[in-house]
Structure formats: C-alpha cells, structure tokens
Amino acid sequence: MAVAEPLTPLELPLTQIDVWLVPATDDVTAMEKIAGHWLSAAEWERLQSRRLPKGHAMFLLTRAVLRRLLSVYQAGVEPGQWQLGRSAEGRPCVLGPLPAPVFNLSHTDDMLVLAFAALDQVGVDIEALDRPLEAAALARRFFSDSEFNALQALPPPQQQDRFLRLWTLKEACVKANGQGLARALRNFEFGFEPALVFYPAPHEAPPHHYWRLWSLTVAGLRVALALRADNNPGAPELCVRQLLWPDQVSIISCTPDYQCGT
C-alpha cells in the first residue's frame, strides 16, 4: 500500500505527464471552509446552481483541486489567484497570472482525474468498469462502421471491455483536440487486429500532429490519456498520484494496459 506524504511543490519535466486521482469527499462544508474563497464569482455562481448534493460536491472538488494543484506547480501563486478560462478551441486553460502546465480533467461519481503536461495539449477521460452501458447502441451511434462491426464480432465477454477502452480513448483524443464530442468521436478510429491501431482524424494530416495515447486500469476505473503535439514529444512517462484532499499525496504504481503513438 502506498504511503501518503504531505503535498509539496513539484516540477513537471517536459518528458512527463502527471495524472492525479482524487476520491470524492462528502464533507462539503469542510471543503468550502478551506477552498470556497478560492473560487471566482462566476465559479461560485455555478457552484450554487448545482442543486443535487453530488453535483455540488464534485464541482467544488474539481475547482478546488485544480487550483490547489496549479499552485503546486507554481508555488508563487495562491490557489485563488488563478484566472481560468477556455482556449479558442474550447479547452479549459489557465489565463494567468503566470504560465502553468496545460491540463484536462474528467470524473465519475466517486473519482476525479486530472492530467497535467508541460507542453502541447492533453486530454483525459475516466469511467468506472462496472458502469452499466448500452455498448452496442452507443457504438452504433458514435463509432465508425468498421469499429462497430469489429466490436460486434468479438465474443460477448470481451465487447464491454473493448468498448470502454475505445470510448475513453476517443473521448481523451477529442478533448486534446478541442472538438465537440458528438461530431468528433468518429474522427479518431481504431483498427482491432492484431491489436488496437490508432488512426488520427483525417484532417490532422497535413499538417501532421504527433499523438501519444495511454489506457490504464486503476482501482476499478478505466483511465485514458491523449497527448497531441506539434513536434515529436518522444516517449513521455506517466506519473500517477492519488491526492487525499486537502494535502496528502501518494504515488500509485501502475503500468498502462495499452499505449501507442503516431
């Protein structure tokens, strides 16, 4: 079992992507006491519009953890000083007051995941392995015809696992590329034989963009990451950590189930 240590300032090498898993917490009152004043007026308004307790708690956790971790990478900036917005492509980003790692995030009901990279664009998605899904209906709607047919040809016990891996990888690619979900999932296609082969969206070339993809299975969760780079990023390493709010961190040892690059 990993040993938790106090959260301290970190550097993010160009050759590394940091992945943070953050379990949800039910103690919203304690979280608001620590981090409520970090939120901007717009964020506070959005928080108060979340009427369901789980939605309220996850929105607060998302904003609090993001601001807390940005200040881990830039220790000279207090969490409440970060100005957050969206890029021209619609990705969440940092607007100031200092440069910060690029980031992306996703969550289930019980777990938040954040990915940070020093350069380029990163996308992350997470799903619970036991989440009930209509895999065939979703694949028919959002996957390419060849992917749907290949999925249907698999033995039934393998279909759910393969669908979930592709769904999360595709979502991570869409988020790294800054496109809308519904119209973009088909643009990132995978061949099934002899193993998963990734085909970037046709409009990516020319000009060509480099891609690195990873799929992880951690604590009953499927986590997918995508890095989109204008220049060859080499072979970045993943560092996976768990943050126990507000200030305890541990390293999680895990090996990707799948990784590829273009």
Rank of each mutant, 00 (worst) to 15 (best):
V3H: 11
Q16C: 05
D26Y: 06
M31F: 11
E32M: 12
A35F: 04
G36R: 05
S40D: 15
S40H: 13
A41Y: 09
W44F: 13
R46F: 10
L47D: 07
K54N: 09
A64P: 14
V65P: 02
V72T: 05
E78I: 11
W82H: 03
Q83E: 15
Q83N: 13
Q83S: 15
L84A: 05
S87C: 06
S87T: 15
A88P: 03
A88Q: 10
E89N: 08
R91N: 09
P97I: 00
P99E: 14
A100I: 04
A100G: 01
F103S: 01
S106P: 01
V113L: 14
F116K: 02
V124E: 03
D125A: 04
A128L: 06
L129Y: 12
R131S: 12
P132H: 00
E134Y: 09
A139R: 04
S146R: 11
N149F: 09
N149W: 10
A153W: 06
Q159F: 07
R162M: 14
L164C: 03
L164V: 01
W167R: 01
N177V: 09
Q179H: 10
R183C: 12
A184V: 11
R186C: 12
N187R: 04
F190I: 07
G191L: 07
E193M: 07
A201F: 15
A201P: 03
P202R: 09
H203P: 00
A205S: 11
H208C: 09
H209M: 12
W211R: 01
L213V: 06
V218T: 09
G220K: 02
V223L: 10
A224F: 00
R228I: 00
R228L: 05
A229I: 04
A229W: 05
A229Y: 05
V240W: 00
V240Y: 00
W245N: 04
Q248S: 11
S250W: 13
I251M: 15
I252P: 00
P256G: 02
P256N: 00
C260S: 03
T262K: 05
